[in-house]
Design a protein around this nucleic acid. Structure first.
Length: 931
DNA sequence: GCAAGGTC
């Protein structure tokens, strides 16, 4: 059997169909992985890297004394499967193979992925020959050629990739840990550092610094308007920008009629047709029609997976000769672009346009399948973009007729330029940029015109613009940062780390602080040249000029030097970062004492507290961090002069909360409404006195409140009492909701909050209320019969348990009672101590103690007391009766028969009804006992 | 809990 291993499932599938020719391909799924069989061949796809480089065991604790961040530099590394199902399946099939062909992508990373597969195969099959197929596109020609002339894996090429993996891991992990620990950041708030992300962040920070330090300078521009037979001509002064006001004024004053035409030049300008799409140019074009980089790539992936466009991750801007452009046109004839295709066929340029980069892995992005607008929905826009771009690359250049008029106004020179599209060319099929004509009338040299209007405008120089996502991706590509597949992900990562935000992108305080610290103490990692040097080293490995281990060792030495600088400065770095980022958590002046309010986090909870604590207890609660971590936004509340707050969670849109104090006040209104004595006037008085919450109010002493609000003693007393009652109600409801959540799963239209509100309407406010509520009232809120019953039963059991605990039954015993089925105090009190002791395994004396506690609390008569001695001897007596074993003993205990005497005295008729023993059986036992 | 690189 011949095993073919491709980089991804979709490639394995297409390769199988091409190689099978007329044979049928049978597709099977094994553990969720597709396997394609045809003839004696099996084709299977990886999922990119199926193993990952990581440190050997023992380095997981970031705070380990023996293994500080620096120790990662020399830590051993291993390859660990990240896709165990695929790994196992490949190995299972490889055992039976008599030939293996690695058919991963034709680039460095593809070679490494291929080598990983090679190692997986070798681990289970030492003999099977393994070869390598190299192809630049999955087309019939390319695949057949690649498989008819197989080569070997290029281990040097793969080694270059491995060097990159290890270097990235040790630099990234050690520096990430060091900086995070220095700034005391943990959990979801770590400060990451990496060869690609850190220089990218630094670019954004540098740009921001340029903008911050930019000093605008004034300049002046002069323009005039004239006309020829009513057709306007707009002209500007030939000197362009005047930086000197006096010169500008003089030129303005000197501009006088007559205006004489000194030059009239007509020309032609070629407007080149665009080049084929690589990933970057695709993202740029998608950004123009409103897509973020990540969104554009997500849609492209979807279009690719469904066969509408070719592989979207490519650096290639030159169509390879093996790509049949003619047949793509034929395909597109079946779409609504038939008209455009016909135009292209008629006007086709001799050779398609070419960009500067060609690569071996994939062709430029082009359409591969027929789609309709209805079929694709929103995604249609990007499919259309790819189709139109493809058509444009086969279309002729556009042409413009240009015109330039030079004029003289008493010694001042003016210029007017115009243009007109004469040959629309590619613009016919690619209408994404506007082609605007500015048409000038025809004039002759020496002709005299009249100045209609003259303007002197003062302007200011502008700072450089912030980066848009697509601009940043272009610059990253120029600097060699990241790859076609990862650039947009790097930007997303910087956003999710809260290093950058907004559109266009700007750094946060954290982003700036981390960049500053790294630039000061570990500048290597913030510079794009680290990537360039690494790439040079990789090139050397590819041609055997250097070894993989040599390159990694050199890199280790450099990283040690970086730590020599970092470690002595750890405290300073921590201070710098924490000091700068403090500001980000500061919300504004405390309305009570005027000191700063800050967002504070503790475990899973967060709140806004006052820097004046404990003197000032002003405090605003926030939703838990599971809803997102709280950060301040740019907006400021006009009433309270506080920054707005928003909650940021992974993979969700930020939750804008607005001004936290406004929120708090709004919330309290709802609570105040539950207080019978609360009035609007009183609420205003509370606000004026800076008492913002029910909680604050409840904590007041009566006398203090009288002074603060200027109300009567009586009223103060009443509202403090009411505040406490409402608080208590809120507490009970929250406890009740928490309880209900355990047993009632949320459903569409039945959130826990909604159920709880429904309960409140029926007067169910605590767990005890659930225990006594009717099933009907529970079901009113959308609970099923079963859910209502479970909830009620659980509530009853919990109440009983709490009751027992209050009575004084220790937790250990309580558990035993519950396990034995004694759920409530009543159930225990109504059972015989011998029976309880037997069922629970609690000693008879302890049961006696518990029973007296219970009966006392229930106001029942004291229970029967049995000493340990009496219990033991009674048991011996009963067990000596022939036919009495453990189970009969239990039945006897259940009706209070625990020794010979109580057996003989028992009322057999009564005992038979509850013990499960027959009257005859009991009578027989009595007879034996008497004897 | 960390990187960057594949792919989903």
């Amino acid at each position: 059997m011949h095993l073919i291993i491709a980089e991804k499932n979709i490639a394995a599938n297409r390769i199988a169909h091409i190689l099978s020719g007329k044979d049928k391909v049978s597709a099977k799924k094994e553990g969720g992985v597709n396997v394609y069989n045809f003839g004696d061949k099996t084709s299977i796809g990886l999922r990119g890297h199926v193993v990952e480089v990581d440190f050997v065991e023992g380095y997981t604790n970031w705070r380990s004394q023996e293994r500080p961040p620096r120790s990662l530099i020399d830590a051993g590394t291993i390859k660990r499967p990240t896709e165990p199902t695929i790994v196992k399946l490949i190995q299972k099939i490889a055992k039976k193979a008599n030939r293996v062909t690695i058919a991963t992508d034709f680039d460095t990373e593809g070679e490494l992925i291929g080598k990983e597969a090679y190692e997986l195969v070798r681990a289970v099959n030492q003999k099977v020959p393994i070869d390598r197929a190299r192809f630049s596109a999955i087309t019939k020609e390319e695949i057949n050629r690649a498989f008819s002339e197989p080569t070997d894996i290029d281990f040097d090429l793969a080694a270059a990739g491995e060097a990159r993996q290890v270097v990235d891991l040790i630099w990234g992990a050690s520096l990430t840990r060091f900086i995070s620990l220095a700034a005391k950041r943990g959990g979801g708030n770590i400060l990451s550092v990496g060869r690609v992300q850190s220089p990218t962040l630094a670019m954004i920070v540098d740009r921001e610094r340029e903008i911050e330090s930019f000093i605008p300078e004034p300049y002046w521009e002069i323009s005039l308007v004239t006309d020829k037979d009513g057709q306007p001509i707009n002209a500007r002064h030939a000197a362009g920008r005047f930086t000197d006001k006096k010169e500008a004024d003089a030129a303005y004053a000197g501009t006088k009629d007559p205006l004489i035409v000194t030059e009239m030049k007509e020309g032609k300008r070629v407007d080149r047709a665009p080049t084929p799409f690589d990933t970057t140019q695709f993202i740029v074009a998608a950004a123009r029609i409103g897509y973020s980089a990540a969104n554009a790539m997500r849609v492209a992936e979807e279009l690719y997976m469904n066969g509408f466009i070719s592989y979207p991750r490519t650096d290639n801007t030159i169509y390879p000769p093996s790509l049949n452009l003619e047949s793509i046109l034929t395909t597109l004839e079946k779409t609504q672009f038939a008209h455009d295709v016909a135009w292209v066929r008629k006007n086709k340029r001799s050779k398609p346009t070419e960009g500067k980069k060609s690569s071996t892995d994939h062709p430029p992005i082009h359409p591969t399948g027929v789609a309709t607008q209805e079929q694709l929905g929103e995604n249609w826009k990007l499919y259309e973009l790819v189709v139109r771009r493809f058509l444009a690359t086969l279309s002729p250049d556009a042409e413009w007729a240009t015109m330039r008029i030079g004029m003289d106004a008493s010694g001042q020179n003016y210029i007017s330029t115009g243009s007109r599209l004469t040959e629309p060319g590619w613009r016919t099929v690619y209408p994404y940029s506007e082609a605007k004509d500015s048409i000038l009338p025809v004039v002759k040299t020496g002709e005299k015109l009249k100045i209609q209007d003259l303007n002197l405008e003062e302007k200011q120089t502008q700072p450089p613009p912030r980066y848009s996502q697509s601009k940043l991706i272009q610059v990253m590509e120029e600097l060699g940062l990241g790859t076609k597949s990862t650039r947009h992900e790097v930007i997303q990562k910087l956003i999710s780390r809260k290093y950058i935000e907004g559109n266009p992108l700007r750094p946060t305080l954290v982003g700036k602080a981390v960049t500053d610290s790294l630039e000061a103490h570990a500048s290597t990692i913030t510079r794009p040249d680290m990537t360039q040097k690494l790439e040079q080293a990789m090139e050397a490995i590819k041609i055997k000029d250097k070894s993989r281990d040599g390159v990694v060792d050199d890199s280790r030495k450099m990283l040690h030097q970086v730590f020599d600088e970092l470690e002595p400065n750890e405290a300073v770095i921590g201070q710098e970062i924490m000091g700068q980022t403090d500001e980000e958590l500061t919300i504004g002046p405390c309305p009570v004492c005027g000191k700063d309010l800050r967002i504070r986090r503790k475990g899973g909870s967060q709140f806004i507290g006052c820097n004046g604590y404990p003197d000032c207890t002003c405090n605003i609660s926030l939703p838990g961090t599971m809803w997102g971590s709280a950060v301040r936004t740019k907006n400021v509340c006009e009433i309270h002069n506080l920054f707005h707050v928003s909650l940021i969670a992974k993979g969700a849109r930020p939750w804008e909360m607005g001004c936290p104090l406004c929120q708090l006040i709004e919330q309290q209104k709802e609570h105040y409404a539950k207080m019978p004595s609360m009035t609007g006037e009183l609420q205003q008085k509370l606000l004026d006195a800076k008492i913002f919450s029910l909680y604050d109010l409840s904590k007041f002493e009566q006398g203090d409140l009288v002074k603060k609000l200027g109300i009567t003693k009586k009223l103060a007393e009443i509202i403090i009492k009411e505040a406490n009652e409402v608080l208590d109600l809120i507490r009970r409801r929250s406890e009740c909701k928490k309880f209900m959540k355990q047993f009632v799963p949320p459903k569409r239209g039945r959130s826990h909050t909604k159920v709880m509100n429904g309960f409140a309407e029926s007067g169910i406010n605590c767990i005890g209320d659930i225990a006594t509520a009717t099933l009907e009232s529970l079901k009113k809120t959308g609970l099923s019969d079963e859910e209502a019953k479970t909830l009620k039963d659980e509530a009853i059991s919990l109440i009983a348990k709490n009751h027992l605990r209050e009575i004084g039954i220790p937790a250990v015993s309580l558990k035993r009672y519950q396990e034995a089925g004694f759920l409530s105090p009543e159930e225990i009190a109504s059972s015989h101590p011998a029976f309880i002791s037997l069922k629970t395994g609690i000693s008879i004396e302890t049961v006696g103690k518990h029973l007296s506690l219970i009966t006392q609390s229930l106001g029942k008569p004291d229970p029967v007391k049995i000493s340990k001695k009496a219990f033991e001897s009674g048991k011996a007596e009963l067990m000596s009766i022939p036919g009495v074993g453990e189970s009969t003993l239990e039945q006897l205990y259940s009706v209070g028969i625990f020794d010979k005497k109580s057996l003989i005295g028992a009322d057999t008729a009564k005992a038979a009804t509850t013990s499960g023993l027959s009257k005859d059986h009991l009578k027989k036992l009595q007879v034996t006992a008497r004897a």
